[in-house]
Design a protein around this nucleic acid. Sequence first.
DNA 1: CAATTTTTATTTGTCTGACATTTAAAAGTC
DNA 2: GACTTTTAAATGTCAGACAAATAAAAATTG
Lengths: 243, 243
Amino acid sequence: MKIDPQKPADLSAQIAQAIRDAIVSGELIVDERLPSEAELSDQFQVSRPTVREALKRLAAQSLIRTQRGASGGAFVNRLSFQDAYSQQVTTSTLLLSMNAVTFDTACEARYALERACAPMSAERRTADQLATMRAEIFRQSQPGLTDEAFCASDVAFHRALVDGAGNPVLSYQLAGAVEAMQPLMNMITFTARSREEIILLHEKIADALEARDAETVDNTLVDLESYTRLLAHDVAERRRKPA
Amino acid sequence: MKIDPQKPADLSAQIAQAIRDAIVSGELIVDERLPSEAELSDQFQVSRPTVREALKRLAAQSLIRTQRGASGGAFVNRLSFQDAYSQQVTTSTLLLSMNAVTFDTACEARYALERACAPMSAERRTADQLATMRAEIFRQSQPGLTDEAFCASDVAFHRALVDGAGNPVLSYQLAGAVEAMQPLMNMITFTARSREEIILLHEKIADALEARDAETVDNTLVDLESYTRLLAHDVAERRRKPA
DNA sequence: CAATTTTTATTTGTCTGACATTTAAAAGTC
DNA sequence: GACTTTTAAATGTCAGACAAATAAAAATTG
């Protein structure tokens, strides 16, 4: 692990990259202890604050964790699905909000990915996951629910659908796509009528999953996508000419 | 933006979280300048090194960028697809390598996602993207190609397929899934015979995309998935009893 | 007056040295 | 031997300083 003090980049960024490379390449393995901050500053010939800035960069990516006290230090962290998942949600959310991604583009991506799960979910969904979906559908039918709560329940419903595929990699990848949509979905104001329609489609999906009928799940997801986009277009229309 | 000095968490982590929340919530907008490090240490009642550690955490997530000099400082960064993409690749790669995800699980996820793109790609692929695929197929047929180079070309081929859908959100989401598989794919040793087989399937996919025949693309992807898994199982088999 | 150069002020990047806090292991005590 | 105390090592935090970059202001010059 070496750095080039002549490079224009910050020393702390270079050091972070060097350690990151060592972790990704497997040179440093999970739970292995890094040298202490004092030793690292010796190795890289920089001061301790600079080393610390580098370590904080890595900690922000959940690549290392630190412990205080004797026999403490920085340890290579096992990246959990949970950690990766929350990072992905943050990144995806910002990406959509900062880059003016249209509702249609995000919606298309989301449902395309979700439909990819549908056949596996129909085959493998557990009774537990089905129960979660039913519970969320029930929640969605409660009167007096705010639009935000309705959206949150919608996300939970779809998350259960995705988890039904029983593939953690799929669940992780799709978490970002589904959750990142929530801020965009929140722009929609759901009328009682449109909530009813969505709940009907959700019930149809749950029924089809129960019957392990992949084709109906897929078709209903297509319907749900069309309906969601229709609602969004109505909102956009009303914004343009607020009669 | 407030922090609680009594909390067990590091001050720099708390400060980073406070600023991160302000960015995600839209309180701080793109290209807006944060207060200087000196001002921030005043506001949060901590020292400058602590503020700096917080800022480096945010920089590691591409949430801010910094500039030196007068009228320099830390600015809210517009998260580009490129930034998000490379972060996702790093995260996904580590996630797979550190959590002993089986080849089958990763492979299933990858092809499920890719098949989600297939119909759109058949409809929208540009001549340019088709040319990229043909070029990669040609590269794959070159004799003397290392297994690593063959895999890299394979990734490029599939990336073009995904980009063909013309949905940047999909491309971003799938980048991680496809690229993160590469280290796992690299464990496979491709015989001349198996390369031939894969190239044939790639050609079939390219032909079908050219003819805008979504169904054949989908079917061929299924075949490619089966064949890839077959190869992986053979490798695993040979590892178990190295005759 | 206009163009160029110099100065200045601001801000991040880095260093030094110190002290506080946490923690595990070693030493001491009953 | 079990418990308590001490000690050492490590991270967390602070204060103050200087270096380097950079843009704006001031001075200079043709």
